[in-house]
Amino acid sequence: MKKTMPRFFQALLLLSLLAAGTPLQAGAFLPLANNPLPEMLKKVVPGVVNISTRTRIRYEENPLLRDPFFRRFFDIPPNMPMEREGQSLGSGVIIDAAKGYIITNNHVIDKADKITVTLQDGRNLEAKLVGSDPGTDVALIQIPGGNLVELPKGNSDGLQVGDFVVAIGSPFGLGQTVTSGIVSALGRSSLGIEGYEDFIQTDASINPGNSGGALVNLQGELIGINTAIVGPSGGNVGIGFAIPINMANQVVNQIIQFGKIQRGQLGIQIQNLTPDLASAFGIKQQHGAVIAGIVPGSPAENAGLQRGDVVIAVNGQAVDSATKLHNHIALMQVGDMVTLNILREGGELTVKARIAKPVPVKQPRPY
């Protein structure tokens, strides 16, 4: 039975591919006959680390604790500590072996007084925080470089639903654990998890402690940073989310250059293009971002953008929602030039504007 099962599944897969008209090449079933994952993981796993933190948490001091009678009545020691030590566990990914840069989630190291990195070979190294961005939940820490393994970066913009992926991290503090699955969806947003959301959704098992770990493709390239799960019990139910590496790269590059994120502003208020709005504008376009307002004196006003313009692309990338445009602008630096393709009165225009420093405005907040 053990010998015939793999061939049985190979036959089923072959029939399904032929039925779908999928062209087959020599060695198409190599992953089943000679699993390539172990060799790939030997190269990748050493680049994923365990992160533990210690944080001093001060108790909220009640005024009664300063009352000598109250303390004496309840037998409260005079030297009772007013703070406790908190601990957390997570994962991280080495992205620069020479400089010792490790990318992780902001919530893994947030407010930590001490960050310890444990490598696959058992070394424990103290890390320093280079910078973090709560809005995207990305943080960059650093350990002494040398004798480290870094993960090559892939292109998360090239992902497709159905691509096979592998998640690597340290769930529940168990140590490095590998799970596999597929890309279940792309561009997940409006989940209320982070301020800037464009998640890769995967059914690869992700659990507490996986945060900050690697999501890689079958070539061993880093394509996402695992960050969150959806589950009624706090455990994995097959719905996990990862920050696309292209998005994380933009954040990391700014942290390395400036030590923080320098978000700029275009000066527009936007909403999703709906079928009703598309009908009202008399356009066939069904996806995009509608400019609902312009901030006076902003780059948007100076560039000639108007209310009712429909943004369909930004810097050559298609815009299918207001969230997509919001995230793209938010990750640009002050002084960067942005190119927008817009629809106005039935025609398509190209507008260029330079991102400027944010200006205080009334809600809703512009992007």
Score class of each variant (00 low, 15 high):
residue 3 K to N: 12
residue 5 M to W: 06
residue 5 M to Y: 04
residue 7 R to Q: 10
residue 9 F to K: 10
residue 10 Q to W: 10
residue 10 Q to P: 15
residue 10 Q to L: 08
residue 14 L to Y: 12
residue 15 L to F: 12
residue 26 A to E: 15
residue 30 L to W: 10
residue 34 N to K: 11
residue 37 L to Y: 00
residue 40 M to I: 11
residue 43 K to M: 01
residue 62 N to G: 06
residue 64 L to V: 14
residue 65 L to Q: 09
residue 66 R to N: 11
residue 68 P to E: 08
residue 71 R to C: 07
residue 72 R to N: 04
residue 74 F to D: 13
residue 75 D to F: 13
residue 76 I to G: 13
residue 77 P to N: 14
residue 79 N to C: 14
residue 81 P to V: 14
residue 89 L to M: 12
residue 92 G to F: 03
residue 93 V to D: 00
residue 94 I to C: 08
residue 94 I to A: 09
residue 95 I to L: 03
residue 103 I to C: 04
residue 103 I to W: 00
residue 106 N to A: 00
residue 108 V to M: 01
residue 109 I to A: 04
residue 110 D to T: 06
residue 112 A to T: 02
residue 115 I to D: 02
residue 116 T to W: 09
residue 117 V to I: 15
residue 125 L to I: 09
residue 128 K to A: 00
residue 131 G to D: 00
residue 132 S to C: 00
residue 141 I to R: 00
residue 145 G to F: 04
residue 146 G to V: 03
residue 147 N to Q: 14
residue 152 P to K: 00
residue 155 N to T: 03
residue 155 N to W: 01
residue 156 S to W: 04
residue 165 V to N: 05
residue 167 A to N: 07
residue 172 F to G: 12
residue 179 T to D: 11
residue 181 G to L: 12
residue 183 V to D: 06
residue 184 S to K: 08
residue 185 A to K: 09
residue 190 S to V: 14
residue 192 G to L: 02
residue 196 Y to I: 02
residue 197 E to W: 04
residue 198 D to V: 01
residue 204 A to T: 08
residue 207 N to S: 10
residue 209 G to I: 06
residue 211 S to N: 09
residue 214 A to L: 09
residue 216 V to S: 00
residue 219 Q to P: 08
residue 230 V to Y: 13
residue 231 G to H: 01
residue 232 P to T: 07
residue 232 P to N: 13
residue 236 N to E: 12
residue 238 G to E: 10
residue 238 G to T: 12
residue 240 G to T: 15
residue 242 A to M: 05
residue 244 P to V: 00
residue 244 P to A: 06
residue 245 I to A: 01
residue 247 M to Q: 04
residue 250 Q to V: 00
residue 252 V to I: 03
residue 253 N to M: 08
residue 254 Q to M: 02
residue 257 Q to R: 10
residue 257 Q to C: 08
residue 264 G to N: 05
residue 269 Q to I: 14
residue 273 L to C: 08
residue 275 P to N: 10
residue 278 A to M: 05
residue 282 G to F: 05
residue 282 G to W: 09
residue 284 K to T: 11
residue 286 Q to E: 13
residue 290 V to Y: 08
residue 291 I to T: 05
residue 296 P to K: 07
residue 299 P to D: 08
residue 301 E to T: 11
residue 306 Q to A: 14
residue 306 Q to W: 09
residue 309 D to M: 04
residue 311 V to K: 03
residue 312 I to Y: 06
residue 314 V to N: 12
residue 318 A to D: 13
residue 322 A to F: 07
residue 323 T to Y: 10
residue 325 L to E: 01
residue 331 L to F: 06
residue 337 M to D: 12
residue 338 V to H: 12
residue 338 V to K: 15
residue 341 N to L: 14
residue 343 L to R: 15
residue 343 L to V: 14
residue 348 E to K: 14
residue 350 T to K: 07
residue 351 V to K: 00
residue 353 A to Q: 08
residue 356 A to T: 10
residue 356 A to R: 09
residue 359 V to I: 07
